[in-house]
Simulated scan of single mutants.
Amino acid sequence: MSSFNIDSVRIIGRCFMNFLLRIGNAFVFFIQSLYHCFIPPYYFSNVARQIIEIGFFSLPIVGLTGVFIGAVIVLQSSLSGILINQEQVVPKLVTITIIKELGPVLISLIMVGKVGSSIAAEIGTMRITEQIDALTTLDINPFKYLIVPRILASVIVFPILTVCADLIGIFGGYVTAVFEFNHNLNIYIKYTAQFFNMYDFIVGLMKATAFGAIISVSSCYYGYHCRKGARGVGIATTSTVVISSILIILANYLITLIHA
């Protein structure tokens, strides 16, 4: 019995030490990435390419998501019961909910699956095919060439995508409210403008920036440390999606708590 207890303690201790080691490696990777973001040289062509791939090619899915976010909020508000001054309350719900919460969070969660998994798979494939080692051999810093452009592009693009999602979401709510529930057009526009809060808008952009950094750093980390061939790429991609989603939800709670 005592031997069983000792073995159990060893297993638990080994798992705990491995967990601490992974946390330490992730923290060191984050610090290295942050350091290289502020130190030249910069590969601006790589940054521009990543801005196009992460931002421009994501606009269709961001727009589609934004439209349905606004439409669903209006549908839920109008169908859940009779609201007092519904034409005044619905624009408020749509504007505040999209700008402050649903816009940044939902867009980021969708971008985890589209962008995060793509980055992890791309860098992971470069790792197992020894392309990253080749960069080091050619005296090219992998952090400068691969990691930094993706982080900078994500930090630049995510707030822009969030603004697009906010505007399209509000427009989707407007279309649903006016054409589906016959709300007055002028009243809807008036109360949308009235309840638009610049502070909430800025907080939403801060969230989007933080979420972009989380997705890019985590995806680059798992891709960079990819092992075990093709299976390792799958593990890196899955880990990126899971960890990034958890960190986004946690960061959203903390930022909301700080600015509440």
Rank of each mutant, 00 (worst) to 15 (best):
A153E: 02
M17K: 05
M111L: 13
Y224T: 07
C164G: 09
L106V: 08
I132D: 04
I140D: 05
I84E: 14
K92Y: 12
N184H: 10
C220H: 01
H225R: 10
P41Y: 05
I187N: 15
I170F: 06
V242I: 04
T125K: 08
L34T: 00
G173C: 06
S33V: 02
G13F: 11
S117G: 06
T240W: 02
L205M: 15
G124W: 08
L138Y: 12
Y221L: 05
R231S: 11
R127F: 10
I189S: 07
D139L: 13
G24C: 00
G55P: 07
Q50N: 10
S8N: 14
Y199R: 13
G116E: 01
R127T: 14
R49K: 14
V155H: 02
I123P: 04
G116A: 05
V157N: 01
F30W: 00
E180L: 06
N186F: 13
S219N: 01
I98E: 03
V241Y: 00
V157D: 02
K100T: 05
A193P: 00
L254M: 15
L21F: 03
L21M: 00
A193M: 11
R49F: 13
Y253K: 08
L185K: 13
G113C: 05
Q86D: 14
S45A: 12
P142E: 05
L93N: 11
S154M: 07
L257F: 14
I214V: 05
C164D: 13
Y35A: 04
I52S: 10
T137G: 06
F68L: 14
A71E: 11
N18D: 09
V112A: 04
G124Y: 08
A260Y: 05
